[in-house]
Simulated assay, not measured.
Amino acid sequence: MTKIRFQALPSEIARHYREGGKDANGHVPEKGVSDGQAPCRHCLKEIADGKPMLILSHRPFDEAQPYAEVGPIFLCAENCERHPDAEDTPDMFLGWEHLNVRGYGADNRIVYGTGRIVPTADVSKYAEELLEKPEIAYVHLRSASNNCYQARIERDAAD
């Protein structure tokens, strides 16, 4: 069985946005206040109600191309500790009913037929199944309701 690891947004990317770097649409991130239901893609925790947050457009791919989706994400406006790479589904997602899980090839394009809305309890199992296929380089974890990027899942380097 393939071992997996969930990966939060890298710290250098979060730092770029926090320091006023432009987002995927060429804008400085908007500042907002969390209602307690804004998932930070760096610490993988809900940003507490009343806390400052950033709202921005993010492209979780190295370069623009037809399959490089751009979408909104939230970040803690203040520095937060990056969620460590983990084999288990990060706690933040455990309270969510479903997640969208989708496989991508080494060319950063969706591998058709892999996208599926999965009960959160089954996310790891489905990601492992996808990553057993040689044509799948990595997996995206996205919200089931809005398709927003949440995290990346890769094969564990030790596997």
Rank of each mutant, 00 (worst) to 15 (best):
V101D: 04
I136M: 11
T114C: 06
A68M: 01
C80H: 04
S143D: 10
D156G: 04
I13L: 13
L130C: 09
A14M: 10
K22V: 15
D35R: 14
G36D: 03
E30P: 01
A137G: 13
A106I: 13
N147E: 09
C80A: 10
R5D: 09
H58R: 13
V118T: 14
S124H: 02
V118A: 07
V28F: 06
F74P: 00
P119H: 04
G105T: 00
A127F: 07
P10I: 03
D107C: 12
P90N: 08
F93G: 04
D91K: 15
I73T: 03
N147T: 04
Y126P: 01
Y112R: 12
P90F: 10
Q7C: 15
S11A: 07
E30M: 14
R41N: 09
C148T: 02
H16L: 01
V101P: 01
M1D: 13
L99M: 03
D49A: 12
K45C: 02
D122T: 09
C76S: 14
R59V: 07
G115D: 07
D35K: 12
I136Y: 11
G115E: 04
N108C: 07
D88L: 14
E19T: 03
P119I: 02
E78H: 15
Y67P: 01
E78D: 14
I4K: 00
A158Y: 10
G71A: 06
P60F: 00
L75C: 10
H42Q: 15
H42V: 05
